[in-house]
């Protein structure tokens, strides 16, 4: 996120501050590392680097909060694996200890969407909205790794969830249903870098279906999905000659708009699909 869409980082920092939630930086953290693009190289290394990141937060005595489904998958599952398997934990710590880190299993890993929904509360969130985004139609993109695999989460059903709908509707926007809403953006599992054209076929399905359902924008909770859905549209234009121009927003950005944060501060410059037309629609509101 910080290296592609710094606007999401800034939006998150401002939004959380306004909600009265203190964020603490994890200095020296690395890539989570990416579950699909890095994990298969060696699952043990994946866990070691994940545990290293967790131990940074442990030292500060705070839970980890992420705005990315990939980080959520890695850190949540590594945390789960190491908490439940002392032997694995020991093997990981054998690598980490000489480097000055130790994983102890003392904290929890939270995703911003799930945190806002369950801990902060949808009602309170609605109260924090200053400029309800009325009349805005949002296509929801969960991204796979927030809810799935459901047996490794505690967020309930992954077929027809309403977690994101709840927090999006708290901004005053309306969610539209579209075909194949729950499918992947196409990028995950390293497919984006393995075979871009293939990954774009799924992106195309999503963007097309959402556009046909009359969405004004698509909202996600993962910078990697964000990249695929946003930059992917530019790539689709280039490779297939089709262009939908559907603005892509991270939830932090959407909430930021609804809380009255000026669009300038939400880093839309880094987007491939311009959000101007969308902001135009919001004119009367923000």
């Amino acid at each position: 996120m910080p290296n592609r869409y710094p606007g999401i980082e800034l939006a998150t920092r401002i939004v959380m501050k306004n909600l009265g939630i203190e964020l603490v930086d994890m200095e020296g953290a690395s890539c989570c590392p990416a579950p699909g693009a890095f994990g298969p190289a060696d699952l043990f290394t994946w866990r070691v680097l994940g545990a290293r990141n967790l131990s940074i937060a442990e030292k500060k005595g705070v839970d980890v909060l992420t705005v990315c489904n990939g980080c959520y998958k890695t850190l949540y599952e590594v945390n789960q694996d190491l908490k439940s398997d002392p032997e694995l934990r020991e093997r990981v710590n054998e690598v980490l200890r000489p480097l000055g880190y130790e994983y102890n299993g003392t904290i929890r890993v939270r995703h911003i969407a799930e945190y806002l929904h369950r801990d902060y509360g949808v009602e309170k969130l609605r109260g924090a909205v200053k400029k309800p985004l009325e009349g805005i139609k949002v296509a929801v993109h969960y991204g796979c790794h927030l809810m799935r695999p459901k047996l490794r989460r505690e967020l309930g059903d992954s077929e027809r969830p309403h977690l994101l709908e709840d927090i999006i509707e708290a901004t005053g926007a309306e969610c539209v249903e579209y075909k194949d809403m729950m499918i992947c953006c196409g990028a995950g599992g390293g497919v984006r870098s393995y075979d871009l054209a293939l990954s774009l076929t799924l992106t195309h399905t999503k963007i097309k279906n959402a556009t046909e359902a009359g969405a004004d924008c698509m909202v996600n909770v993962c910078p990697f999905c964000h990249l695929q859905l946003d930059r992917g549209q530019a790539e689709l234009k280039e490779q297939w000659g089709v262009y939908y121009g559907l603005p892509i927003l991270h939830y932090s950005q959407l909430l930021g708009l609804a809380m009255g944060i000026p669009p300038k501060m939400l880093g839309f410059e880094a987007h491939y699909v311009p959000v101007d037309s969308f902001l135009e629609k919001l004119k009367g509101i923000i």
Binding site: P2, N3, D25, M26, E27, G28, A29, S30, A41, D42, F44, T45, V48, L49, R52, V95, L96, P98, L99, G100, Y101
Partner: peptide
């Protein structure tokens, strides 16, 4: 404020990777 800003942290990532078969 990640490994980009903390060379020592980057070093520990590299050492950790060297310590495994990856």
């Amino acid at each position: 404020p990640t490994t980009h800003s903390y060379p020592q942290a980057l070093e520990s990532v590299q050492k950790a990777m060297k310590a495994t078969s990856i």
